[in-house]
Design a protein around this nucleic acid. Structure first.
Lengths: 293, 293
DNA sequence: CGGATCCATAGGTTCAGCTTATTGGTGGAG
DNA sequence: CTCCACCAATAAGCTGAACCTATGGATCCG
């Protein structure tokens, strides 16, 4: 396209097309009439056809001008809308936010999302459930803007913000010897097969989780890995083993499973929000600070 | 919308957004780097948000910039298409043409339209079947660009171009006394009820049509008006009267009707193309001159 | 025929966008 | 740690395009 053409030409053209009078159109544009004549002539030279048929008495649109008028008008209003949209995105009032989170923190995410969506109704939030490691790599790759992880270690390029913490609890089958009491000594699990989240899904979280066992001198031997807490609890209830889990995944226990407080120094699972370090985008900041009114 | 914004800003923005490098983008735009920096900064001031995040090491799009990029690109290509369209309309290669025509000349219109459409496939032709008077007023009002009429009189503001002519013929029921011969003396119709097109649909055409009768001293008394030649012929075939018609509407005669040549000086119906006088639009000229290859 | 109207042209002016030169900040190599 | 290469921002002056005023030429009207 001819790079000489500018929006000025379109604005001037539209003014003349609406007024059908160079003098009045020039007045509306706050310029003198000759300047307008010149610019229109230049536009016609660029397009290669007459857009107006002028006599010294009146001005009419040619067919070419008549077809161009609505398009030019449309173009300008589109541009206005696009600029406005860009402004809103820049101010964090609109746009899209990718949130990656560990599935065991779904309730926290949905609560935060509700608060956030109320404040930024024009922001489209996309949720990606995943493991802690995948959440962090999604952040690093730029696939996600905000992450929610459990017991992550500080690392380069990722900023962590603690959200809440919850205790670890033991979960045993109802017919387990320890199931009669309210509390559980970690050592009592020494003989039972352990069912746990794969360490690869979140090494640090795994280590924090299993620390009570090591503290009690129990060697951590995972009998069964499972990457879904709900399933793990069901396996325990079925009598296939025992586990240590963050409290929140044990709120709804099936019959056949018992939750037991852990003895010893209190151990908690920490839930963090994570962003790329230095990501100061208003949408990201807004999500970090959004909480229920 | 801020009238300071110009297409230059969009072009420069897109160059930087694609190169992510002010130096290279400036090179591509054939300007110096500082000029580009200034224009981008000005654009950002107009929009009110940062579009690029620059370090002295690299350039990245902000969220606002990323949303704006495809829209700006789309805008420019739309404009290019619109300018091209306007140019094609101006040169008569595209656009829309309204053709009003008398229904009794449908075959002529369709023939002409076929020739025209082959040459101007991007022109959308709209056909309006009507009476001669309505065709002419449509032209005058600008509702139609080209008209096809029968036996019209010259009048102000309308230019007429003869297309073809055809003889008038008499049409009588098969059991009419004159039906035995090949030729018809107009005076022989004196006693029969006349079925004719309404004079109001085209006064001059009506007068030309009925002149053979007046020449023969027959007083023209219309027994039945009908504004559709096909129907008139059917009425004749049904024995309700006689008529004088342009030859072409009698090509397919129903049983019960006979076509007879008229005695006396040859009378013909003239078919014209009509335009507004001084309408030199290329599409109109092209339709006037289009004929089968 | 004189006056009013309106678009085009002519010629001078001004400022926006361009130029070159330079600064300042960052990252990588020695 | 220093030096250098790289890159965007800034500074300051220049140039041309868009603008101005004044005028010309055409058409319509009283």
């Amino acid at each position: 396209m001819d790079p000489r053409i500018e929006l000025r030409h379109l604005r001037y053209f539209l003014a003349v097309a609406e007024e059908l009078h160079f003098g009045r159109a020039a007045q509306r544009l706050h310029i003198a009439q000759p300047a307008l004549s010149q610019q229109i002539k230049q536009l016609e030279k660029i397009v290669g056809v007459e857009l107006f048929r002028r006599t010294s008495r009146n001005v009419r649109l040619t067919d070419a001008g008549a077809t161009f008028q609505p398009r030019a008008s449309d173009l300008l209003s589109r541009l206005a809308a696009d600029l406005d949209e860009a402004g809103r995105v820049g101010r964090g009032e609109a746009g899209r936010l990718d949130v990656a989170f560990i599935t065991s923190a779904t309730s926290i995410v949905s609560e935060r999302l509700r608060a956030f969506s109320r404040r930024r109704p024009d922001v489209q939030v996309k949720l990606h459930g995943a493991f802690t490691v995948d959440v962090l790599t999604a952040l690093e790759r730029g696939t996600a803007d905000v992450g929610i992880v459990r017991d992550a270690e500080e690392r380069d390029g990722i900023a962590l913000f603690p959200l809440t913490s919850e205790p670890f609890v033991g979960v045993v089958p109802a017919d387990h010897p320890a199931a009669k009491g309210e509390r559980l000594e970690a050592a009592a699990l020494a003989a039972d097969p352990l069912i746990l989240f794969p360490r690869s899904a979140g090494p640090h979280a795994f280590d924090v989780n299993t620390q009570p066992l090591r503290d009690a001198g129990v060697e951590v031997q995972v009998a069964q890995e499972c990457s879904n807490w709900h399933t793990i609890i069901l396996l325990v209830a079925a009598g296939l083993g025992v586990t240590i889990a963050p409290y929140s995944v044990t709120t709804l226990l099936p019959a056949g499973a018992r939750r037991l407080e852990l003895d010893g120094p209190p151990r908690t699972s920490q839930i963090f929000m994570a962003t790329r370090r230095g990501d100061e985008r208003p949408l990201v900041r807004a999500f970090l600070t959004a909480s229920e009114t």
